[in-house]
């Protein structure tokens, strides 16, 4: 025991994450957000929007709701239970933009909010656009040959 590597000792003493419970809530809440989004889509379509516009409106609505819940300090409380359920939907992206915005207000609206608004969500935008650009180049090359 005395010569046990410290990392394995730590593993023995650290309680595991309650994965089953976490996954259940992630499924219910994450799935619920998608379910609600789908019915919002039908609602916007019923109100006369095209499928594409309705889809965009759903995204905007969910981002708005997430921003509101983040602002009144509720989103992080839901997230503590929901885990990945509130991380993976677009509401999680909105929370990642809105939370540093509120948080850095103290440092001013230019160097605080302005400069730090993408500190959490930045990687998603960078790698999304980067992958898109790589795909675009490959696709142009393919088109060229075909």
């Amino acid at each position: 025991m005395k010569n046990e590597p410290y990392t394995s000792r730590i593993r023995r003493h650290t309680p595991p994450s309650p994965t089953k419970k976490n996954c259940l809530f992630a499924f219910l809440i994450g799935g619920g957000i998608c379910f609600a989004g789908q019915w919002l889509l039908y609602l916007y379509e019923a109100l006369g929007a095209t499928r594409d516009d309705a889809s965009t409106l759903v995204t905007v609505t969910l981002i708005f709701l997430s921003a509101l819940l983040t602002g009144i300090g509720v989103y992080d409380r839901i997230a503590r239970v929901a885990g990945a359920g509130t991380l993976v939907p677009v509401t999680g992206f909105a929370n990642a933009v809105v939370s540093p915005a509120i948080d850095t207000k103290q440092e001013g609206f230019i160097l605080g909010v302005g400069a730090k608004i993408f500190t959490v969500a930045g990687p998603v935008i960078l790698y999304g656009v980067l992958c898109g650009a790589v795909y675009g180049v490959l696709y142009s090359v393919i088109l060229w040959f075909v």
């Binding site: 595991p16 994450s17 994965t19 976490n22 996954c23 992630a26 499924f27 219910l28 809440i29 994450g30 799935g31 619920g32 957000i33 998608c34 379910f35 989004g37 789908q38 885990g83 990945a84 359920g85 991380l87 993976v88 939907p89 999680g92 992206f93 990642a96 959490v120 990687p123 998603v124």
Partner: peptide, 27 residues
Amino acid sequence: AFAVGGGLCVVAQLLIDKTALTPARIL
């Protein structure tokens, strides 16, 4: 939508709980 969206969240949750991947990397 519920099942697939929820399923994607469960995969992310498993990655968070079982691997050293941080939420930012998963996103």
